[in-house]
Protein backbone atom coordinates (compact mmCIF):
# COMPACT_ATOMS: atom_id res chain seq x y z
CA UNK A 1 0.00 0.00 0.00
CA UNK A 2 2.87 2.36 0.73
CA UNK A 3 3.91 2.15 -2.88
CA UNK A 4 0.53 3.01 -4.25
CA UNK A 5 0.44 6.03 -1.98
CA UNK A 6 3.76 6.99 -3.36
CA UNK A 7 2.29 6.95 -6.84
CA UNK A 8 -0.90 8.76 -5.98
CA UNK A 9 1.13 11.29 -4.02
CA UNK A 10 2.47 12.55 -7.33
CA UNK A 11 -0.99 13.71 -8.24
CA UNK A 12 -0.77 16.42 -5.63
CA UNK A 13 2.02 18.00 -7.64
CA UNK A 14 1.57 21.18 -9.56
CA UNK A 15 -1.25 20.72 -12.09
CA UNK A 16 0.67 22.47 -14.87
CA UNK A 17 3.50 20.04 -14.48
CA UNK A 18 1.09 17.12 -14.58
CA UNK A 19 -0.30 18.42 -17.83
CA UNK A 20 3.06 18.41 -19.45
CA UNK A 21 4.57 15.19 -18.19
CA UNK A 22 1.90 12.64 -17.40
CA UNK A 23 0.59 10.98 -20.45
CA UNK A 24 -1.56 8.57 -18.45
CA UNK A 25 -3.11 8.98 -15.07
CA UNK A 26 -5.37 6.41 -13.47
CA UNK A 27 -7.01 7.57 -10.25
CA UNK A 28 -8.77 5.13 -7.98
CA UNK A 29 -9.78 2.90 -10.86
CA UNK A 30 -12.16 0.12 -9.91
CA UNK A 31 -13.72 -2.51 -12.09
CA UNK A 32 -16.02 -5.26 -10.98
CA UNK A 33 -17.34 -7.97 -13.26
CA UNK A 34 -20.44 -9.97 -12.53
CA UNK A 35 -19.74 -13.57 -13.25
CA UNK A 36 -22.68 -15.88 -12.68
CA UNK A 37 -24.10 -13.72 -9.90
CA UNK A 38 -20.72 -13.47 -8.26
CA UNK A 39 -18.78 -10.21 -8.18
CA UNK A 40 -15.22 -10.41 -9.46
CA UNK A 41 -13.19 -7.40 -8.34
CA UNK A 42 -10.76 -7.16 -11.23
CA UNK A 43 -9.39 -3.78 -10.15
CA UNK A 44 -9.69 -2.52 -6.58
CA UNK A 45 -8.74 1.13 -6.80
CA UNK A 46 -5.61 1.45 -8.89
CA UNK A 47 -3.58 4.67 -8.96
CA UNK A 48 -0.97 4.93 -11.64
CA UNK A 49 0.76 7.79 -13.41
CA UNK A 50 2.93 7.27 -16.43
CA UNK A 51 5.29 9.90 -17.70
CA UNK A 52 5.83 10.82 -21.29
CA UNK A 53 8.52 8.69 -22.86
CA UNK A 54 8.50 6.08 -20.12
CA UNK A 55 8.63 2.35 -20.74
CA UNK A 56 6.43 0.79 -18.08
CA UNK A 57 5.85 -2.91 -17.66
CA UNK A 58 2.93 -4.24 -15.71
CA UNK A 59 3.78 -7.53 -14.08
CA UNK A 60 1.39 -9.85 -12.44
CA UNK A 61 0.11 -13.40 -12.40
CA UNK A 62 -2.75 -14.50 -14.61
CA UNK A 63 -6.03 -12.99 -13.48
CA UNK A 64 -4.40 -10.15 -11.56
CA UNK A 65 -6.20 -7.57 -13.70
CA UNK A 66 -3.50 -6.54 -16.18
CA UNK A 67 -5.75 -6.72 -19.21
CA UNK A 68 -8.56 -4.99 -17.34
CA UNK A 69 -6.22 -2.13 -16.46
CA UNK A 70 -5.06 -2.02 -20.06
CA UNK A 71 -8.59 -1.74 -21.36
CA UNK A 72 -9.15 1.20 -19.04
CA UNK A 73 -6.04 3.14 -19.91
CA UNK A 74 -6.50 2.26 -23.56
CA UNK A 75 -9.92 3.87 -23.69
CA UNK A 76 -11.50 0.52 -24.55
CA UNK A 77 -13.54 0.19 -21.40
CA UNK A 78 -14.73 2.56 -18.72
CA UNK A 79 -14.06 2.09 -15.01
CA UNK A 80 -16.92 1.56 -12.55
CA UNK A 81 -15.32 4.12 -10.28
CA UNK A 82 -12.29 6.35 -10.54
CA UNK A 83 -10.95 8.19 -13.53
CA UNK A 84 -8.55 7.66 -16.37
CA UNK A 85 -6.82 10.56 -18.01
CA UNK A 86 -5.08 10.14 -21.31
CA UNK A 87 -3.00 13.21 -22.06
CA UNK A 88 -4.98 14.83 -19.23
CA UNK A 89 -8.28 14.13 -20.95
CA UNK A 90 -10.83 12.32 -18.81
CA UNK A 91 -11.92 9.55 -21.13
CA UNK A 92 -15.28 9.25 -19.38
CA UNK A 93 -16.14 12.68 -20.79
CA UNK A 94 -15.64 11.65 -24.41
CA UNK A 95 -18.36 10.63 -26.84
CA UNK A 96 -17.94 7.76 -29.29
CA UNK A 97 -16.50 9.95 -32.04
CA UNK A 98 -13.92 11.45 -29.71
CA UNK A 99 -13.04 8.04 -28.33
CA UNK A 100 -12.55 6.71 -31.85
CA UNK A 101 -10.32 9.67 -32.62
CA UNK A 102 -8.35 9.06 -29.44
CA UNK A 103 -7.84 5.39 -30.27
CA UNK A 104 -6.85 6.29 -33.78
CA UNK A 105 -4.40 9.08 -33.05
CA UNK A 106 -3.23 8.87 -29.45
CA UNK A 107 -2.88 5.17 -28.82
CA UNK A 108 -1.23 2.34 -30.70
CA UNK A 109 -2.37 -1.13 -29.68
CA UNK A 110 -0.28 -4.24 -29.88
CA UNK A 111 -2.02 -7.50 -29.10
CA UNK A 112 -0.88 -10.84 -27.84
CA UNK A 113 -2.50 -12.49 -30.85
CA UNK A 114 -1.15 -9.91 -33.34
CA UNK A 115 -4.65 -9.16 -34.66
CA UNK A 116 -3.67 -8.26 -38.16
CA UNK A 117 -6.52 -8.03 -40.64
CA UNK A 118 -6.16 -11.40 -42.40
CA UNK A 119 -7.40 -10.29 -45.83
CA UNK A 120 -5.06 -7.31 -45.96
CA UNK A 121 -1.35 -7.26 -46.83
CA UNK A 122 1.26 -6.05 -44.34
CA UNK A 123 1.26 -2.69 -46.10
CA UNK A 124 -2.53 -2.40 -46.05
CA UNK A 125 -2.60 -3.33 -42.38
CA UNK A 126 -0.20 -0.55 -41.52
CA UNK A 127 -2.09 1.89 -43.75
CA UNK A 128 -5.44 1.20 -42.12
CA UNK A 129 -5.19 3.49 -39.05
CA UNK A 130 -3.85 6.28 -41.26
CA UNK A 131 -6.78 5.98 -43.65
CA UNK A 132 -9.20 5.93 -40.71
CA UNK A 133 -7.47 9.08 -39.54
CA UNK A 134 -8.11 10.76 -42.86
CA UNK A 135 -4.63 10.64 -44.39
CA UNK A 136 -4.58 10.59 -48.21
CA UNK A 137 -3.91 7.13 -49.64
CA UNK A 138 -0.59 7.97 -51.30
CA UNK A 139 0.87 9.48 -48.12
CA UNK A 140 -0.37 6.56 -46.07
CA UNK A 141 1.28 4.15 -48.47
CA UNK A 142 4.64 5.92 -48.29
CA UNK A 143 4.53 6.13 -44.53
CA UNK A 144 3.46 2.51 -44.12
CA UNK A 145 6.30 1.39 -46.36
CA UNK A 146 8.86 3.34 -44.35
CA UNK A 147 7.45 2.03 -41.07
CA UNK A 148 7.69 -1.53 -42.33
CA UNK A 149 11.23 -0.78 -43.37
CA UNK A 150 11.94 0.41 -39.82
CA UNK A 151 10.70 -2.82 -38.28
CA UNK A 152 12.79 -4.82 -40.72
CA UNK A 153 10.04 -5.98 -43.04
CA UNK A 154 10.78 -3.80 -46.04
CA UNK A 155 10.96 -6.91 -48.20
CA UNK A 156 7.63 -8.36 -47.06
CA UNK A 157 5.21 -5.49 -47.58
CA UNK A 158 2.85 -7.36 -49.89
CA UNK A 159 2.69 -10.52 -47.82
CA UNK A 160 -0.55 -11.50 -46.14
CA UNK A 161 -0.45 -12.18 -42.38
CA UNK A 162 -0.76 -15.94 -42.92
CA UNK A 163 2.38 -15.80 -45.05
CA UNK A 164 4.36 -14.30 -42.18
CA UNK A 165 5.84 -15.88 -39.06
CA UNK A 166 4.53 -14.90 -35.64
CA UNK A 167 7.49 -12.61 -35.03
CA UNK A 168 7.04 -10.98 -38.41
CA UNK A 169 3.33 -10.50 -37.80
CA UNK A 170 4.08 -8.80 -34.50
CA UNK A 171 6.54 -6.53 -36.31
CA UNK A 172 3.77 -5.52 -38.69
CA UNK A 173 1.58 -4.89 -35.65
CA UNK A 174 4.30 -2.68 -34.16
CA UNK A 175 4.50 -0.70 -37.39
CA UNK A 176 0.71 -0.41 -37.42
CA UNK A 177 0.68 0.79 -33.81
CA UNK A 178 3.10 3.57 -34.77
CA UNK A 179 1.11 4.58 -37.85
CA UNK A 180 -0.46 7.77 -36.54
CA UNK A 181 2.47 8.81 -34.30
CA UNK A 182 0.62 7.94 -31.10
CA UNK A 183 1.56 9.27 -27.70
CA UNK A 184 1.18 5.83 -26.16
CA UNK A 185 1.75 2.27 -27.23
CA UNK A 186 -0.20 -0.29 -25.28
CA UNK A 187 1.02 -3.84 -25.62
CA UNK A 188 -0.82 -6.52 -23.67
CA UNK A 189 1.55 -9.48 -23.50
CA UNK A 190 3.06 -8.73 -26.90
CA UNK A 191 5.43 -11.66 -26.56
CA UNK A 192 2.90 -14.12 -25.17
CA UNK A 193 2.63 -16.03 -28.43
CA UNK A 194 6.27 -15.83 -29.40
CA UNK A 195 9.27 -17.91 -28.47
CA UNK A 196 11.78 -16.40 -26.06
CA UNK A 197 14.25 -15.26 -28.68
CA UNK A 198 11.65 -13.64 -30.96
CA UNK A 199 9.94 -12.11 -27.95
CA UNK A 200 13.17 -10.49 -26.82
CA UNK A 201 13.72 -9.14 -30.32
CA UNK A 202 10.30 -7.49 -30.25
CA UNK A 203 10.96 -5.98 -26.83
CA UNK A 204 14.31 -4.64 -27.93
CA UNK A 205 12.74 -3.22 -31.05
CA UNK A 206 10.05 -1.49 -28.97
CA UNK A 207 12.73 -0.03 -26.75
CA UNK A 208 14.62 1.36 -29.74
CA UNK A 209 11.47 2.74 -31.38
CA UNK A 210 10.45 4.38 -28.14
CA UNK A 211 13.26 6.92 -28.45
CA UNK A 212 12.89 7.22 -32.23
CA UNK A 213 9.22 8.07 -32.01
CA UNK A 214 9.22 9.64 -28.55
CA UNK A 215 6.38 7.40 -27.56
CA UNK A 216 5.35 6.08 -24.16
CA UNK A 217 5.22 2.31 -23.98
CA UNK A 218 3.17 0.28 -21.55
CA UNK A 219 3.34 -3.47 -21.72
CA UNK A 220 1.92 -6.27 -19.64
CA UNK A 221 3.75 -9.49 -19.08
CA UNK A 222 4.21 -12.27 -16.61
CA UNK A 223 7.64 -13.14 -17.84
CA UNK A 224 10.59 -11.66 -15.90
CA UNK A 225 12.80 -11.98 -18.96
CA UNK A 226 10.69 -9.42 -20.80
CA UNK A 227 11.36 -6.66 -18.26
CA UNK A 228 14.84 -5.70 -19.43
CA UNK A 229 13.73 -2.62 -21.39
CA UNK A 230 11.49 -1.23 -18.65
CA UNK A 231 12.06 2.09 -16.93
CA UNK A 232 9.60 1.03 -14.31
CA UNK A 233 7.84 -2.17 -13.38
CA UNK A 234 4.44 -2.07 -11.77
CA UNK A 235 3.47 -5.21 -9.89
CA UNK A 236 -0.21 -5.99 -9.92
CA UNK A 237 -1.68 -8.62 -7.64
CA UNK A 238 -5.37 -9.37 -7.25
CA UNK A 239 -6.42 -6.04 -8.74
CA UNK A 240 -4.06 -3.95 -6.63
CA UNK A 241 -0.68 -2.42 -7.23
CA UNK A 242 1.57 -4.07 -4.68
CA UNK A 243 4.93 -2.76 -5.75
CA UNK A 244 6.64 -0.42 -8.18
CA UNK A 245 10.29 -0.78 -9.06
CA UNK A 246 12.45 1.62 -11.00
CA UNK A 247 15.01 0.51 -13.53
CA UNK A 248 17.92 0.58 -11.04
CA UNK A 249 16.18 -1.54 -8.46
CA UNK A 250 15.20 -3.85 -11.25
CA UNK A 251 18.70 -4.66 -12.43
CA UNK A 252 19.58 -5.94 -9.01
CA UNK A 253 16.45 -8.02 -8.94
CA UNK A 254 16.85 -9.42 -12.42
CA UNK A 255 20.41 -10.23 -11.53
CA UNK A 256 19.42 -12.10 -8.42
CA UNK A 257 16.73 -13.99 -10.25
CA UNK A 258 19.08 -14.93 -13.05
CA UNK A 259 21.61 -15.95 -10.42
CA UNK A 260 19.05 -17.97 -8.54
CA UNK A 261 18.05 -19.83 -11.68
CA UNK A 262 21.55 -20.88 -12.60
Amino acid sequence: MSNTENVSGQQELDAAELLSTHVIRAVGVRKTYQLGGEAVHALKGVNLSVERGEYVSIMGPSGSGKSTLFNMIGGLDKPDAGQVFIDEVDIAALDTFELAWLRCHKIGYIFQTFNLIPVASALENVMMPMLFGGMPEADAQDKAASLLEKVGLGHRVFHKPNQLSGGQQQRVAVARALANDPAIILADEPTGNLDLHTGEEIIRMLEALKDDFQVTIITATHDHKMLAASDRVVYLTDGEITDIKSRDELHIQVGTIAGAEQ
Binding site: L18, F85, E88, D90, L94, D95, E98, A100
Partner: peptide, 20 residues
Protein backbone atom coordinates in the same frame (compact mmCIF):
# COMPACT_ATOMS: atom_id res chain seq x y z
CA UNK B 1 -15.90 14.46 -12.94
CA UNK B 2 -14.94 16.20 -9.73
CA UNK B 3 -14.17 19.89 -10.12
CA UNK B 4 -10.44 19.52 -10.24
CA UNK B 5 -10.65 17.14 -13.13
CA UNK B 6 -13.27 18.95 -15.16
CA UNK B 7 -10.96 21.91 -15.62
CA UNK B 8 -8.26 19.75 -17.10
CA UNK B 9 -10.73 17.78 -19.20
CA UNK B 10 -12.10 21.04 -20.60
CA UNK B 11 -8.56 21.96 -21.55
CA UNK B 12 -8.06 18.45 -22.88
CA UNK B 13 -11.21 18.45 -24.92
CA UNK B 14 -9.58 20.83 -27.32
CA UNK B 15 -6.87 18.29 -27.84
CA UNK B 16 -9.35 15.56 -28.71
CA UNK B 17 -11.11 15.86 -32.03
CA UNK B 18 -14.04 13.99 -33.45
CA UNK B 19 -13.22 11.06 -35.67
CA UNK B 20 -14.55 11.60 -39.18
Amino acid sequence: SPQGASASSAAGRRRVQRQR
